[in-house]
Design a binder for these strands. Structure first.
Lengths: 188, 188
DNA sequence: TTCAAATTAGAATGGACACTCAAATACTGA
DNA sequence: TCAGTATTTGAGTGTCCATTCTAATTTGAA
């Protein structure tokens, strides 16, 4: 595995990642074979293995992209409202179409693979934490544990919405997400 | 494929279905191989193919069981409240553990297979319809379309909860489902 | 008890898959 | 231009999978 010194290698690597991303998003993990990736990228298996040690490695790269894209670092400021967080998720799903499908498909299809599972679970924890913090900011009477639990409800429900959209591209994510948000807000 | 006249055949068939159900629930579709099924059922491939035409057929049988179990025919009376429907779903998930996991895993992992996809989608439609009807019963000011949309939100969100539980068996489905229900009820 | 049919055993087949490798070609710094 | 390394090629390897087949065994009705 020579270390990509020439332009051609970098371009091929990008083509491979784009192909992998597209395939996971549209066909799921089981449809994402080396042959399919090479086909989509317009290369041959030898080239793939010149740049990646394994299929797993390419998939992990794409998953990392997806996880990074779910909540942009805006959220780190610690001043976002719940509405901001939900809106960011909705925007991600609408704009970063394929990456969003990757995120959802991996979170649940690939849940048996230990590497992927760990990565996704850790990310989910952080995500719930951020939602909980935002809830407490707007409703300080909630204990941390109460906020965590309600945040878990909301995040899981949002994932359900996102999941539905993977199956039905016309599903109006923005509308349904807003309903969940408003319902939750009306109570707290 | 001789037509199961003897007791032994029926027992073997049951063992195969139980093994398939367990494997889909715990390992997902990709872990459900003929070898694994035979292993779990304590038989050999020859016996499997004496009773089923294909692996697909066994899986479809299990999926049919799961779909039938999601909402027992109680719901057909057309007098259920939203709370009844949610409670029935929660009970299904808590009592029929493996079948519930099968339902969720198939709905999303197997979403590429045309046969499974059609079956699951059709079932989902009916399910949303029943939730919408219950909503309209308790809030007659809603138009049919409004009720349908809100029902879709709730059912998707519930599926998100159910999905989370497949990944984390300790997830408190009943509690989170109740939160969703109450939040939705508080608004309408 | 007997016999035809049901059931099981278990090796064998063919295809798809992830991955390897040696040879050919393309690139770029000197 | 040229040498040396990056990159591509495409056929090949071994493994695992679903499925098939034939011979053996078991069943139960008469």
């Amino acid at each position: 595995m020579p270390p990509m010194r020439y332009k051609a290698g970098i371009e091929t690597r990008d083509k491979i990642l784009a192909a992998t991303r597209l395939l996971i998003a549209t066909d799921g993990l089981e449809g994402t074979t080396i042959k399919a990736i090479c086909n989509e990228a317009g290369i041959l298996p030898g080239s793939f293995y010149n740049l990646f040690d394994s299929k797993e490695q390419a998939i992990l790269s794409v998953v990392r992209q997806a996880i990074d894209a779910v909540d942009p670092d805006l959220a780190h400021r610690g001043t976002d409202t719940l509405a901001d967080l939900v809106e960011a998720y909705v925007r991600f799903m609408e704009e970063d179409d394929n990456l969003a499908s990757v995120y959802i498909r991996i979170a649940f299809s690939g849940a048996n693979n230990s590497d992927l599972r760990g990565r996704v679970l850790r990310h989910h924890q952080g995500r719930v934490g951020r939602f909980a913090a935002a809830m407490q900011r707007s409703a300080p009477e909630l204990t941390t544990e109460q906020a965590e639990r309600r945040a878990e409800t909301l995040v899981s429900a949002l994932n359900g919405i996102a999941l539905h959209r993977v199956l039905d591209p016309d599903f109006d994510v923005a509308w349904h997400a807003r309903v969940l948000l408003e319902d939750a807000a009306a109570v707290t």
